[in-house]
Amino acid sequence: MKQQLIIAVGREFGSGGHEVAEILAQRFNIPFYDSNLLEEVAAHKNVDAAGLTKYDERPRFFGVYRHVHGYSNSPAENIAHIQFKYLRTMAEEGRPFVIVGRCAEEVLADFGCVVSVFILGDEHRKIERVAKKYGVRPDEARNMLLLNDKKRKAYHNYHCKGKWGDSRNYELSINSSRIGVESTADIIEMYIREKYSRD
């Protein structure tokens, strides 16, 4: 593909969104970013990545942080803004990539080369996946699911105007439980190739 391509993947915890994004990165042969984005940011800023990753995709707690003239003392909020800025810089430089989470569908909304996708799943399927992947009991998997989705939603909705998972904010919303991770990636790939063939 000659044109710049950025795929922004939002996902529910346990939906396999991360794997779908990885498959797409391989198929289009473009870099893949998830939590490793902060490692690249840290290397770029010459700072310790471990100091940043603990604040990655964390929601902001009420009353504990303050804003003054556009500055916030919330580490999570500042780390989020560093990532948003870095994503925009990469996009401006014409770099193609797949990015998971990090409000990318809205942060990069001004770039015409962005395809935004949201991967969701049925609860029982997500519990099965999480239990198998992390080796935990189904009730523990369910708690992990609820907690992580709650955090992701709070993080996303704090930074974005559009609501997390609202299909109106994404080009595609796909339930990966119905057709599996590989087929979900197939459909997204097909959509992207079709879209780009028309440009």
């Binding site: 800023k45 100091g51 003054v68 500055y71 003392n73 560093i82």
Partner: peptide, 18 residues
């Protein structure tokens, strides 16, 4: 206000202060 601004400047450069 100085605390908020100072810690924010540090965090934006990759030095978060919790």
């Amino acid at each position: 206000s100085a605390n908020v601004v100072g810690t924010s400047v540090a965090a934006r450069e990759g030095h978060p202060i919790g």
